[in-house]
Simulated assay, not measured.
Amino acid sequence: MTLNLNTAHRNNLSPQSSGNRLLSSLPEEDQGHMQALCELVEVEVGEALFEPGQPIDFVYFPIDALISQLAVADGRMTLEVGAVGREGMIGTSVALGHTLAQVRAVVQRSGQCLRMSAADFCNEFAHLESLQHLLHRYTNTLLAQAIQIAVCSRFHVLEARLARSLLITRDRLQSEKFHMTHEFLAHALGVRRVGVTKAASALQQQKLISYSRGNIEILDAAGLEAVSCRCYELVKDSGSIGMGSVFT
Protein backbone atom coordinates (compact mmCIF):
# COMPACT_ATOMS: atom_id res chain seq x y z
CA MET A 1 0.00 0.00 0.00
CA THR A 2 1.54 3.28 -1.14
CA LEU A 3 -0.73 5.77 0.57
CA ASN A 4 1.18 8.83 1.69
CA LEU A 5 -0.91 11.09 3.90
CA ASN A 6 0.23 14.68 4.02
CA THR A 7 -2.11 15.51 6.87
CA ALA A 8 -4.31 13.49 9.17
CA HIS A 9 -6.31 14.89 12.04
CA ARG A 10 -9.62 14.40 13.76
CA ASN A 11 -12.20 16.42 11.94
CA ASN A 12 -14.63 18.72 13.73
CA LEU A 13 -17.13 19.22 10.94
CA SER A 14 -20.70 19.72 12.05
CA PRO A 15 -23.49 17.47 10.77
CA GLN A 16 -24.71 18.41 7.25
CA SER A 17 -21.28 19.96 6.47
CA SER A 18 -19.14 16.88 5.97
CA GLY A 19 -18.77 17.60 2.26
CA ASN A 20 -19.52 13.96 1.44
CA ARG A 21 -22.98 13.34 0.00
CA LEU A 22 -23.27 9.79 1.32
CA LEU A 23 -22.55 10.79 4.91
CA SER A 24 -24.66 13.92 4.66
CA SER A 25 -27.72 11.87 3.67
CA LEU A 26 -27.74 10.06 7.01
CA PRO A 27 -29.95 11.35 9.84
CA GLU A 28 -28.19 14.18 11.65
CA GLU A 29 -27.54 12.19 14.84
CA ASP A 30 -26.13 9.19 12.94
CA GLN A 31 -24.04 11.42 10.71
CA GLY A 32 -22.52 13.21 13.69
CA HIS A 33 -21.72 9.88 15.31
CA MET A 34 -20.02 8.63 12.12
CA GLN A 35 -18.02 11.81 11.69
CA ALA A 36 -16.74 11.60 15.25
CA LEU A 37 -15.02 8.34 14.26
CA CYS A 38 -13.38 9.86 11.16
CA GLU A 39 -10.20 11.76 10.54
CA LEU A 40 -9.62 14.25 7.73
CA VAL A 41 -6.78 13.21 5.41
CA GLU A 42 -5.14 14.51 2.25
CA VAL A 43 -4.53 12.07 -0.62
CA GLU A 44 -2.34 12.70 -3.66
CA VAL A 45 -2.68 11.79 -7.34
CA GLY A 46 -1.39 8.30 -8.10
CA GLU A 47 -1.50 7.02 -4.52
CA ALA A 48 -3.02 3.58 -4.04
CA LEU A 49 -5.49 3.31 -1.18
CA PHE A 50 -5.99 -0.42 -1.80
CA GLU A 51 -4.36 -3.16 -3.84
CA PRO A 52 -6.22 -6.37 -4.78
CA GLY A 53 -5.78 -9.07 -2.15
CA GLN A 54 -4.51 -6.70 0.55
CA PRO A 55 -6.39 -6.11 3.82
CA ILE A 56 -8.75 -3.13 3.92
CA ASP A 57 -7.71 -1.23 7.02
CA PHE A 58 -9.67 1.97 6.34
CA VAL A 59 -12.70 3.18 4.43
CA TYR A 60 -12.74 6.58 2.73
CA PHE A 61 -15.42 9.20 2.12
CA PRO A 62 -14.06 11.63 -0.52
CA ILE A 63 -14.81 15.33 -0.11
CA ASP A 64 -13.08 16.86 -3.13
CA ALA A 65 -10.81 13.96 -4.16
CA LEU A 66 -11.66 11.48 -6.93
CA ILE A 67 -10.77 7.81 -6.56
CA SER A 68 -10.61 5.38 -9.48
CA GLN A 69 -11.43 1.71 -8.87
CA LEU A 70 -9.47 -0.54 -11.23
CA ALA A 71 -10.01 -4.24 -11.82
CA VAL A 72 -6.61 -5.89 -12.31
CA ALA A 73 -5.80 -8.93 -14.47
CA ASP A 74 -2.46 -10.78 -14.41
CA GLY A 75 -1.08 -8.10 -12.10
CA ARG A 76 -0.74 -5.47 -14.83
CA MET A 77 -3.80 -5.17 -17.13
CA THR A 78 -6.45 -2.86 -15.70
CA LEU A 79 -9.95 -1.62 -16.40
CA GLU A 80 -11.77 1.08 -14.48
CA VAL A 81 -15.00 -0.30 -13.02
CA GLY A 82 -15.95 2.83 -11.10
CA ALA A 83 -14.91 6.32 -10.06
CA VAL A 84 -15.86 7.63 -6.63
CA GLY A 85 -16.08 11.27 -5.63
CA ARG A 86 -17.98 13.18 -2.96
CA GLU A 87 -21.13 11.19 -3.74
CA GLY A 88 -19.81 7.93 -2.31
CA MET A 89 -17.19 5.96 -0.44
CA ILE A 90 -14.32 3.53 -0.94
CA GLY A 91 -14.26 0.25 0.98
CA THR A 92 -17.95 -0.71 1.15
CA SER A 93 -17.12 -4.41 0.78
CA VAL A 94 -15.91 -4.64 4.40
CA ALA A 95 -19.50 -4.26 5.54
CA LEU A 96 -20.30 -7.42 3.55
CA GLY A 97 -17.53 -9.38 5.23
CA HIS A 98 -14.87 -8.97 2.53
CA THR A 99 -11.77 -7.88 4.44
CA LEU A 100 -9.45 -8.08 1.40
CA ALA A 101 -9.61 -5.53 -1.41
CA GLN A 102 -11.02 -6.75 -4.71
CA VAL A 103 -9.86 -3.79 -6.81
CA ARG A 104 -7.02 -1.28 -6.95
CA ALA A 105 -8.19 2.09 -5.62
CA VAL A 106 -6.03 4.88 -7.04
CA VAL A 107 -6.33 8.62 -6.41
CA GLN A 108 -7.25 10.28 -9.69
CA ARG A 109 -7.54 13.80 -8.26
CA SER A 110 -5.83 14.89 -5.07
CA GLY A 111 -7.90 16.31 -2.26
CA GLN A 112 -9.45 15.57 1.10
CA CYS A 113 -11.24 12.47 2.38
CA LEU A 114 -12.78 11.50 5.67
CA ARG A 115 -11.15 8.24 6.76
CA MET A 116 -12.53 5.71 9.23
CA SER A 117 -11.03 2.43 10.41
CA ALA A 118 -12.63 -0.60 8.78
CA ALA A 119 -13.35 -2.04 12.24
CA ASP A 120 -15.24 1.08 13.34
CA PHE A 121 -17.18 1.16 10.08
CA CYS A 122 -18.25 -2.48 10.42
CA ASN A 123 -19.36 -1.83 13.98
CA GLU A 124 -21.43 1.18 12.90
CA PHE A 125 -22.93 -0.78 10.01
CA ALA A 126 -24.02 -3.51 12.42
CA HIS A 127 -25.83 -1.04 14.69
CA LEU A 128 -27.11 1.82 12.49
CA GLU A 129 -30.22 0.88 10.54
CA SER A 130 -30.01 4.09 8.49
CA LEU A 131 -26.47 3.17 7.37
CA GLN A 132 -27.57 -0.36 6.46
CA HIS A 133 -30.39 0.87 4.21
CA LEU A 134 -28.15 3.50 2.61
CA LEU A 135 -25.28 1.09 1.94
CA HIS A 136 -27.61 -1.53 0.47
CA ARG A 137 -28.84 1.02 -2.10
CA TYR A 138 -25.33 2.33 -2.74
CA THR A 139 -23.65 -1.05 -3.25
CA ASN A 140 -26.49 -2.21 -5.49
CA THR A 141 -25.99 0.87 -7.66
CA LEU A 142 -22.21 0.38 -7.74
CA LEU A 143 -22.68 -3.20 -8.91
CA ALA A 144 -25.15 -2.19 -11.61
CA GLN A 145 -22.75 0.49 -12.88
CA ALA A 146 -19.77 -1.90 -12.86
CA ILE A 147 -21.75 -4.39 -14.94
CA GLN A 148 -22.74 -1.66 -17.40
CA ILE A 149 -19.12 -0.48 -17.72
CA ALA A 150 -18.00 -4.08 -18.38
CA VAL A 151 -20.57 -4.38 -21.17
CA CYS A 152 -19.52 -0.98 -22.50
CA SER A 153 -15.85 -2.01 -22.58
CA ARG A 154 -16.64 -5.10 -24.63
CA PHE A 155 -19.08 -3.75 -27.20
CA HIS A 156 -18.63 0.02 -27.64
CA VAL A 157 -16.01 1.89 -29.66
CA LEU A 158 -13.19 3.65 -27.83
CA GLU A 159 -14.18 7.19 -28.79
CA ALA A 160 -17.65 6.73 -27.28
CA ARG A 161 -16.19 5.07 -24.19
CA LEU A 162 -13.72 7.94 -23.71
CA ALA A 163 -16.56 10.46 -24.00
CA ARG A 164 -18.51 8.51 -21.37
CA SER A 165 -15.50 8.43 -19.03
CA LEU A 166 -14.87 12.17 -19.37
CA LEU A 167 -18.51 13.00 -18.70
CA ILE A 168 -18.60 10.82 -15.58
CA THR A 169 -15.40 12.48 -14.33
CA ARG A 170 -16.96 15.91 -15.00
CA ASP A 171 -20.02 14.91 -12.99
CA ARG A 172 -18.02 13.48 -10.07
CA LEU A 173 -15.83 16.60 -9.85
CA GLN A 174 -18.55 19.12 -10.74
CA SER A 175 -16.05 20.81 -13.03
CA GLU A 176 -15.56 21.16 -16.79
CA LYS A 177 -11.79 21.24 -16.25
CA PHE A 178 -9.64 18.46 -14.80
CA HIS A 179 -6.32 16.66 -15.24
CA MET A 180 -6.06 13.14 -16.70
CA THR A 181 -2.98 11.82 -18.47
CA HIS A 182 -3.04 9.55 -21.52
CA GLU A 183 -1.37 6.89 -19.38
CA PHE A 184 -4.10 6.98 -16.75
CA LEU A 185 -6.87 6.95 -19.37
CA ALA A 186 -5.23 3.94 -21.01
CA HIS A 187 -5.24 2.09 -17.67
CA ALA A 188 -8.83 3.13 -16.98
CA LEU A 189 -10.14 2.11 -20.41
CA GLY A 190 -8.01 -1.02 -20.72
CA VAL A 191 -6.36 0.04 -23.99
CA ARG A 192 -2.95 1.16 -25.28
CA ARG A 193 -1.94 4.81 -25.01
CA VAL A 194 -1.95 5.21 -28.79
CA GLY A 195 -5.66 4.36 -28.79
CA VAL A 196 -6.39 7.04 -26.20
CA THR A 197 -4.36 9.56 -28.22
CA LYS A 198 -6.38 8.87 -31.36
CA ALA A 199 -9.72 8.99 -29.56
CA ALA A 200 -8.86 12.20 -27.69
CA SER A 201 -7.65 13.80 -30.92
CA ALA A 202 -10.93 12.91 -32.61
CA LEU A 203 -12.92 14.55 -29.80
CA GLN A 204 -10.67 17.59 -29.91
CA GLN A 205 -11.04 17.94 -33.69
CA GLN A 206 -14.80 18.03 -33.19
CA LYS A 207 -14.25 20.88 -30.71
CA LEU A 208 -15.86 18.88 -27.94
CA ILE A 209 -12.83 19.00 -25.65
CA SER A 210 -9.52 20.77 -25.27
CA TYR A 211 -6.65 18.45 -24.30
CA SER A 212 -3.08 19.56 -23.61
CA ARG A 213 -0.52 17.76 -21.42
CA GLY A 214 -3.20 16.00 -19.47
CA ASN A 215 -5.25 19.15 -18.87
CA ILE A 216 -8.77 18.53 -20.16
CA GLU A 217 -11.58 21.03 -20.63
CA ILE A 218 -15.00 20.00 -21.85
CA LEU A 219 -16.00 22.65 -24.38
CA ASP A 220 -19.33 21.20 -25.53
CA ALA A 221 -20.95 18.93 -22.95
CA ALA A 222 -24.08 18.34 -25.05
CA GLY A 223 -21.97 17.43 -28.07
CA LEU A 224 -19.79 15.13 -25.99
CA GLU A 225 -22.88 13.39 -24.64
CA ALA A 226 -24.14 12.96 -28.21
CA VAL A 227 -21.00 11.03 -29.25
CA SER A 228 -20.90 9.06 -26.01
CA CYS A 229 -22.46 5.60 -25.88
CA ARG A 230 -25.85 5.19 -24.19
CA CYS A 231 -24.06 3.97 -21.06
CA TYR A 232 -23.58 7.54 -19.88
CA GLU A 233 -27.33 8.12 -20.05
CA LEU A 234 -27.79 5.11 -17.75
CA VAL A 235 -25.06 5.83 -15.18
CA LYS A 236 -25.27 9.62 -14.87
CA ASP A 237 -26.73 10.94 -11.64
CA SER A 238 -30.30 11.10 -12.99
CA GLY A 239 -30.00 7.87 -15.00
CA SER A 240 -31.82 4.61 -14.29
CA ILE A 241 -28.74 3.23 -12.49
CA GLY A 242 -27.33 6.61 -11.45
CA MET A 243 -26.35 7.68 -7.96
CA GLY A 244 -29.39 9.92 -7.73
CA SER A 245 -31.48 6.83 -6.93
CA VAL A 246 -29.37 6.17 -3.81
CA PHE A 247 -30.42 9.42 -2.14
CA THR A 248 -34.12 9.52 -2.98
Score class of each variant (00 low, 15 high):
His9Arg: 15
Arg213Pro: 01
Gly239Met: 01
Leu208Lys: 05
Leu203Thr: 03
Ile67Pro: 14
Gly53Tyr: 00
Cys122Thr: 14
Ile241Ala: 06
Glu39Lys: 12
Asp74Arg: 15
Arg115Ser: 13
Pro55Trp: 04
Leu5Arg: 15
Leu23Asp: 06
Glu39Gly: 02
Arg104Ser: 07
Gln102Pro: 01
Ile63Cys: 11
Asn12Leu: 06
Arg172Lys: 15
Asn6Phe: 02
Val72His: 08
Leu234Ile: 02
Gln54Asp: 04
Glu28Ile: 15
Leu13Lys: 15
Val194Gly: 02
Ser117Glu: 10
Gly32Leu: 07
His187Ala: 13
Asn11Ile: 09
Ile209Phe: 01
Glu217Ser: 07
Leu100Ser: 12
Val106Asn: 11
Ala119Val: 12
Glu159Lys: 12
Gly75Val: 09
Glu80Leu: 05
Ala222His: 11
Gly244Ile: 01
Glu124Phe: 04
Gln145Ala: 02
Asp64Ile: 11
His179Thr: 13
Leu79Tyr: 07
His33Trp: 01
Leu189Tyr: 06
Arg10Asp: 12
Ala105Lys: 05
Arg115Pro: 07
Ala95Leu: 05
Arg172Cys: 07
Glu28Tyr: 03
Arg172Ser: 04
Val106Glu: 15
Ala8Val: 09
Leu203Gly: 03
Ala188Gln: 14
Met1Val: 06
Gly190Cys: 09
Met243Lys: 08
Ser212Pro: 02
Ala200Glu: 00
Val157Asp: 07
Leu37Thr: 06
Val157Ile: 13
Val45Ser: 08
Leu185Asn: 08
Ala186Leu: 03
Gln174Asp: 10
Gln54Lys: 15
Pro62Phe: 04
Glu29Gln: 09
Lys207Asn: 15
Ala226Gln: 14
Val103Trp: 01
Leu131Thr: 06
Ile56Met: 12
Val94Cys: 02
Ala83Thr: 11
Ser240Gln: 12
Leu40Asp: 11
Gln108Ser: 13
Phe61Cys: 11
Glu183Arg: 15
Gln16Asn: 08
Gly244Gln: 08
Val94Glu: 04
Asp171Val: 01
Leu40Arg: 13
Phe61Met: 13
Ala160Val: 04
Arg104Trp: 00
Met180Gln: 11
Ser240Phe: 00
Asn20Val: 14
Thr181Lys: 14
Asp120Tyr: 03
Ser93Tyr: 07
Met180Ile: 07
Leu114Val: 09
Val45Gly: 05
Val194Asn: 13
Val72Leu: 10
Glu47His: 11
Leu100Pro: 08
Ser153Thr: 07
Gln54Tyr: 06
Glu42His: 12
Gln204Arg: 13
Arg230Glu: 06
Thr248His: 10
Leu70Cys: 04
Val191Gln: 08
Thr139Phe: 04
Leu131Phe: 04
Glu159Leu: 00
Glu124Met: 12
Gln102Arg: 14
Ser24Phe: 00
Glu129Ile: 06
